[in-house]
Design a binder for these strands. Structure first.
Lengths: 233, 233
DNA sequence: TTGTAATGGTGTTTATAAGACACAATTATA
DNA sequence: TATAATTGTGTCTTATAAACACCATTACAA
């Protein structure tokens, strides 16, 4: 039972990059730290791995603590382990990124943590190596969204095609042709027209669609080149 | 200096998935364990993270110990952290995968570790969650090779186009059209014809090419859809 | 050494999909 | 109610993928 006795044990943290979308910009949920270390500075939401927790479970817990959300898209990004990345003590951090529909969040939980939705383009400087984490997550989001139909995770259940287009334009920071975009999206068979036009929403323009969940499951596991024209740099 | 006092420290291991290519099959460098735990069973090459080591440094060290190779393609895959993945003690494992040119290895080091090159299709059952790791690495290799020009890392410095094609056919386990393949590869500008035909090699068929390293660097960072026809499942 | 089979190199055709652009219908706003 | 902005559908051109033909070179065995 003691083969590993001479090896050293170290701290394992988790950090969550939480992406949202407000209809115009890709947003990050960031924390203005009201606790030590690095009090007063900006950081990602994080925590330590519990004794009886899987990595994924811990990431879900951290996401839940901050947003009150469960069952979001959550995927491991990478593990960061430079020797001095945390000046307090040697710590490696397993980083996850989440895609959330920012309209379903728990405002109280967010306020309690002193967290704010901030546009990716206005991201403040973050502590430790959190800037690198965000940059890598942004890149991974571009990868994933070009090959898999994950963009929908950032939208409300019902959405218009132009809304979806704005999302992709925000992810890739470039304009797409309206005509070609809708043709391509429709042809995937992923969308189901609801026939309705949302009366509650601010805009009454455009037909509302929702995901065809059957086809969606298929797409999630398949490799589909959604937008070959989008450069992933 | 002591904000993290109540958090628990755990073991951090690293495991390396080492891919090779023998001209026909994708190979894995696996260890028939002559040490505890799980003596006698098959596993990946691994080790523990040292106190003064970055993750990447540790992965390089482990790869070097086994193969005598440095400066190989080495990339972090994912971190595995299920509670009971290691029955000896709670351990999380940061997994890297490497692409090596199996002709340049240090045979003595490999023999000393009781390691063997085994075709992916003949992979034996591995300890712990190493099977899952390999499966995920195989998938990641397919992703990467479809979008980036990393296949060359598995070939000797000089190679023929048919050899390169066989590599891609092995990665994706399907036949490719000979004519279309060479046209596509040539058009990337990645290959430099050497004019020679290798006199030492077993086969004298086909012109020898080598990488145009200038263009290669560009491709490594770019997203390039090498083979849209290849399904990544 | 010579004929035959296998493999390698280059070209052409066809089908499909991307990208650019036009027009009509609907909605928002002054 | 007029006008501008936005949305939905259609067409054309061009680029690229995929299928297939032909000839040259090499390997191997009679």
């Amino acid at each position: 039972m003691s083969y590993y006795t001479h090896s050293n044990r170290i701290l394992v943290a988790l950090d969550c990059i939480i992406f949202g979308f407000d209809g115009e910009d890709i947003k990050l949920l960031l924390i203005k730290r009201n606790f030590e270390p690095e009090l007063g500075k900006w950081s990602l939401m994080g925590g330590f791995l519990g004794e009886d927790e899987d990595l994924e479970t811990a990431a879900q817990r951290i996401l839940y603590e901050l947003t009150g959300l469960k069952n979001n898209y959550l995927e491991q990004l990478q593990t960061f382990g430079s020797i001095n990345r945390d000046p307090v003590e040697r710590t490696i951090s397993v980083v996850y990124y989440a895609l959330v529909n920012s309209q379903q969040q728990d405002i109280n939980a967010i306020n309690a943590h002193n967290a704010y939705w901030i546009s990716l383009s206005e991201k403040p400087n973050l502590i430790f190596d959190h800037n690198k984490m965000v940059e890598q997550a942004r890149q991974q989001l571009r990868y994933k969204a070009a090959l898999h139909a994950i963009g929908f995770e950032l939208l409300p259940e019902q959405f218009t095609i132009p809304q979806l287009q704005k999302l992709y334009e925000a992810i890739y920071n470039r304009k797409l042709d309206r005509r070609n975009f809708s043709r391509k999206i429709i042809s995937t068979g992923l969308l189901l027209g609801t026939g309705e036009k949302d009366s509650k929403s601010a805009t009454k323009k455009g037909q509302l669609y929702r995901l065809d969940t059957t086809n969606y499951q298929r797409y999630l596991n398949d490799y589909v080149s959604f937008f070959p024209e989008l450069t992933l740099s």
